[in-house]
Computed example of a mutant assay.
Amino acid sequence: MSTWGDVAATVAKVAPIVGSILPGVGTVAGAGVSAVASIVASALGTSPDPDSVMDALKNDPDALAKVRQAELDNQKDLAQIAMQREQNQLAAQTAEYQADASDRQSARSYAQTANDHTARNLAYMYTVALFLTIAAHIYIWIAHVPVDPLVLGTINTLEGVLVTMAVKSSEFFTGGSRSADQLANQFAQFATTPGAVTAPGATAPAIQQPSQANSPYRGS
């Protein structure tokens, strides 16, 4: 079964605007862009569903040329649809962020008013466990302790989990952000990459700084 993402990947080189919009068809952020699917289907003489369109793209040697021409003929409308899609995506991301921030603030308020120390105790536990796990990992590495690969893999996974939980616990008290979430994911990926730390002479993967351009939200 084909998807609009498959169609977009096929036509993107000849019709970049159509290719950028089609993956949004049928999604919350892509509401209102189904007209693009109709434009493509009309140009190919098929019904506006991804399976029919993909069949035409595979079987009609002139299909890509038709899609390209359809884009040229509808440039103004497509530009407006693309803009609407970006606005929909931004609105969806904003709603998600606001809901996440509201949830964190509610949890903080409850912890303060109820004098509940559960979150703080968990933060201490995650932090201590993380440092103990890292210390054990370093000792195994430096002392060349023979360890079963399954056990070593478990340690790597545990490090990744503890890094994520420690960062999340810190965000609970200091305020979280999407860039912090991205950084936690990168740390977790680094910690769980097989051989990144334990293989002699191995080069650790570079941890890129979170891009503020990809995440317009800062702070909680």
Rank of each mutant, 00 (worst) to 15 (best):
M54S: 02
Q112W: 07
P50G: 01
Q93W: 15
D116K: 03
L122C: 08
Q87T: 12
D49G: 03
D100P: 01
A123R: 00
Y126V: 13
S52A: 11
R104W: 08
K76R: 13
Y124T: 09
N121C: 03
H117V: 02
K76V: 13
Q84S: 13
I81D: 02
I81P: 03
E86C: 06
L130Y: 06
D116I: 01
Q80S: 15
Y110S: 06
Y110N: 06
A99D: 09
D49F: 08
N121S: 05
Y124G: 04
L90A: 14
T127Y: 07
Q89C: 15
A135M: 03
S106I: 10
Q112I: 06
A82T: 11
L78T: 02
K58T: 14
R108K: 04
L90D: 15
F131M: 08
Q112G: 08
L64N: 04
V53P: 01
A82N: 11
Q84C: 08
D60L: 03
Y97W: 09
T118W: 00
V67P: 03
A119S: 01
A56V: 00
Q112F: 11
A123F: 08
A70D: 03
V67A: 04
V128I: 07
E96F: 04
Y126T: 11
A129K: 07
P61F: 02
D100V: 06
A65E: 08
E96P: 07
T113K: 13
N121Y: 15
Q80F: 14
Q98K: 07
P61I: 15
A70F: 02
A63C: 01
D51N: 10
I134Q: 07
R108H: 00
L57V: 01
A70M: 07
Q80D: 14
Y126P: 10
P61G: 07
A95M: 11
D100N: 05
L72A: 14
A92H: 02
Q93I: 04
E96I: 04
N115G: 15
S102T: 13
Q105N: 10
Q112C: 03
R85G: 12
I81T: 07
Y124V: 12
Q89S: 14
A56G: 00
K58P: 14
A82H: 12
D116Q: 01
R68D: 05
A92P: 02
D100R: 08
A129V: 05
Y124R: 10
P48F: 01
T127N: 09
L132W: 10
